[in-house]
């Protein structure tokens, strides 16, 4: 396939199919994230990259034989390796033996929230999630260092790349408040159902990306100035780390939320909520910053 536009759209469809597969494998939170990130944000980012680098690919000169042999050999070795692996759905597989039973049995009691994924994410494995948040922040800073958020005639308010599309404007005006409301719902309902800071941040960012696409970059930058975004990202990481430091100063281990209130379960609730807010702010601002950086860049010959 020489048309990279088609490649990106096919990848988006593939992502959606993967989300459906995750749903079937009981991973509702993951399906949610994949649908929002893989099918939504990744597609938009790749398309804005294609706008800068050109849509058509040249036919490669190399013969595909050598890569095919390498791939076939590796694949065969991997398939041979799976022959000893536990079967799909086997409840006695090693993956279900170590810490998972404790998370499943004690999670709702110790952390006090029905959604075990959120409990494990923010409380039991809070260190990991803190690390991931910092990685996202670092990636955002790397993109900003590489590209920067450019200003130019195309980012003045009132200018759009697609012209004045009345139908899109009306529908998007109706949809954006709903999207933002839904983002807030996902953010604060993550304790009880599928959702949490990661998904909410992405949904919030897609709301603003939609606004940017339809109303033009200038208008979007009036709503969320680009200068704010790195600071907001840092603020999110700070909230997360601050909760950890608070519990450290209160005489408990880092990120032990039971220090936040007299009742441990109540403290867990508060801690998870604060941490998820921090994650949400970081994810939102970094994804929007990456989008501004890629979409706002002027094309060079």
């Amino acid at each position: 396939m020489r048309d990279l536009f088609g490649v990106v759209i096919l990848f988006s469809i593939y992502s959606f199919m993967t989300a459906a597969l995750f749903m079937d494998l009981d991973a509702v939170d993951v399906a949610f994230t994949e649908a929002a990130v893989g099918a939504g944000v990744t597609t938009v980012l790749m398309l804005s990259c294609l706008r800068l680098t050109g849509r058509w690919e040249r036919r490669p000169k190399h013969s595909p034989l050598l890569p095919l042999i390498v791939v076939a050999t590796t694949g065969t070795a991997l398939v041979y390796g799976t022959l000893d692996a536990p079967l799909l759905g086997d409840p006695n597989a090693p993956a279900h033996q170590h810490v998972a039973p404790r998370y499943i049995e004690q999670g709702p009691i110790e952390v006090g929230m029905p959604n075990m994924v959120t409990a494990v994410l923010a409380s039991y494995r809070g260190y990991d999630t803190f690390g991931e948040t910092v990685v996202i922040f670092t990636a955002g800073i790397a993109v900003l260092l590489l590209l920067g958020i450019q200003e130019g005639p195309h980012t003045r308010p009132g200018r759009t790349a697609i012209g004045d599309q009345i139908v899109l404007r009306v529908v998007v005006k109706l949809l954006i408040p709903l999207i933002l409301l839904y983002g807030l719902y996902v953010q604060f309902h993550g304790d009880f159902g599928a959702g949490g800071g990661f998904q909410a941040g992405v949904i919030f960012a897609t709301g603003f990306i939609l606004y940017d696409l339809v109303f033009g970059e200038g208008d979007a930058r009036l709503v969320v100035p680009p200068d704010w975004l790195p600071r907001l990202g840092a603020l999110g990481v700070l909230i997360y780390g601050g909760v950890g430091l608070y519990s450290l100063f209160a005489g408990k281990p880092f990120l032990d939320y039971s220090a936040l209130a007299h009742d441990p379960v109540h403290g867990q609730h508060l801690g998870v909520m604060l941490v998820e807010i921090g994650v949400g702010i970081t994810v939102f601002s970094i994804i929007l910053a990456i989008f501004y950086a890629l979409a706002g860049r002027a094309r060079r010959a």
């Binding site: 994230t33 998972a100 993109v143 990456i290």
Partner: peptide, 26 residues
């Protein structure tokens, strides 16, 4: 219940994945 631990790992990995892909695109 299905095991929540892989869900947590992958949930964060997806969002980290889009961030690193964005670095690649940049």
């Amino acid at each position: 219940y299905s095991n929540p631990l892989p869900h947590v790992l992958i949930l964060t990995a997806i969002v980290v994945g889009v961030a690193t892909t964005a670095v690649g695109l940049a």
